[in-house]
Amino acid sequence: MHPILKLVAQRIALGILLLFAASALIFVGTEILPGDVAQSILGQTATPEALANLREDLGLNESAFSRYFNWLGGVLQGDLGNALSNNKNIAEAMGKRLGNTLFLAGWAALFSVPLAVTLGLVAVRYKNRWPDKMISGVTLATISLPEFFIGYLLIYFVSVKLRWFPSVAIINDSMSVLEKLNAIALPIAVLTMVVLAHMMRMTRAAILNVMQSPYIETAELKGLTPFNVIRKHAFPNAIAPIVNVVMINLAYLVVGIVIVEVIFVYPGMGQYLVDHVAKRDVPVVQACALVFAAVYIGLNIVADIVSIISNPRLRHPK
């Protein structure tokens, strides 16, 4: 077998193992309460009958071990169980919301990734001159801003004062793509700003690292323009670290989306999760957390695989 295939297979197997461990951890996370889950869901005023019923529904009379494997077995067959609050099938309720969330995250990534990489290149080209300094200054500021500050600032000025875009992002199937994009313009802007700073700074660092290599000096000495030096010689060698940065930030996007969905009342996974944490609906919370963890781990695996593939020493072994 080609060594690169072996490495990739190993990485994927490790990721799947990690996902199983993460599912166990999510399960344990809802078990750490010293008292009874049913009691804490219903509160102190619950009647003994209600408590007994809920214990039955949650299967609390069985051991934690067998409950975990029942749950895991169901998940592997696509059955996420039923919500406690309205007894609806979780997988059905989640399917559409997951689609919405991926739609939002996808468009945010489509805007933020090229923008971040380009700005990173510009910062390197004009290193220590005003464009670079301005970019780093803005970056430092945006890292310190919570999502909801950017979100409500945009709603207040762009949506309420200027009336350019709607302040709530409600989408449904009858809308065309353009109408949908208009609806989610502000959430996309917030998510872009949240991840842009990190991505740009790390891109800049990755390329600067490569720029110190001797072959860059050769390229400069043979008379290439500065931008071509970066484009042809520095960029291909910086792909692995940049892809890594992009993936880490996309994983962050998946999390940041929870808050952005609540700000803009967007019908996605994040809103679903937060609503049910407040209702103490444990099965829904577990299911959502598992999906988020799967996406997060998946993106990290992709990042690792890309950096393996983009390494020519691994691609063409001696």
Partner: peptide
């Protein structure tokens, strides 16, 4: 391997 905010939400539920 689980995003911090997500795990916090699980525990706080």
């Amino acid at each position: 391997s689980i995003p911090t905010l997500i795990f916090a939400l699980v525990v706080l539920s």
